[in-house]
Simulated assay, not measured.
Amino acid sequence: MSSIPANNWALHSYPTDGSRTYPPDTMLRLNQVCEITGKKKSSLYKAIADGEFPEPKKIGKRAVAWSANVVFQWVAERPSAR
């Protein structure tokens, strides 16, 4: 768990991994997004190209990340999540 203080109501946790929680303003890297969404890297980037998944934000010259809010919202909107 992160040392960043946050209210419990604001934390996101992924159901299959109860040991990890993410404050809503956390930036998730590719491997974390793949783990949370269940998609492989190639499938994730295809979904981005098709407009089915949010684009990442640049966080450096050669680094990108996604907002935890955006990723968890996408997961929650999937039909299988209901």
Rank of each mutant, 00 (worst) to 15 (best):
M1H: 12
S3M: 09
I4P: 00
P5N: 07
N7M: 08
N8K: 13
W9N: 06
W9K: 11
A10D: 15
A10W: 02
H12M: 04
T16M: 03
D17A: 07
D17G: 01
G18Q: 15
G18Y: 05
R20L: 06
R20S: 14
T21H: 13
T21C: 13
Y22D: 01
Y22E: 03
Y22V: 00
Y22S: 02
P23Q: 09
P23K: 14
P23V: 09
T26V: 03
T26H: 03
M27I: 13
M27Q: 09
R29Q: 15
R29N: 07
L30K: 04
L30D: 11
L30R: 14
N31V: 06
Q32F: 02
V33S: 03
V33C: 07
C34E: 11
E35T: 02
G38V: 06
K39C: 10
K39V: 03
K39N: 11
K41E: 09
K41G: 00
K41S: 08
S42M: 09
S42N: 08
S43N: 12
L44T: 09
Y45G: 01
Y45S: 10
K46P: 04
A49V: 07
D50L: 13
D50R: 12
D50N: 15
G51N: 04
G51C: 03
E52F: 08
F53S: 14
K57G: 10
K57C: 10
K58E: 14
I59F: 07
R62N: 13
V64D: 08
W66C: 09
A68P: 09
N69T: 11
N69H: 04
V70M: 03
F72P: 01
F72V: 00
Q73A: 11
Q73T: 10
V75T: 06
V75W: 07
A76D: 07
A76Q: 10
E77M: 10
E77N: 14
E77L: 06
R78T: 09
P79A: 10
A81P: 03
R82C: 10
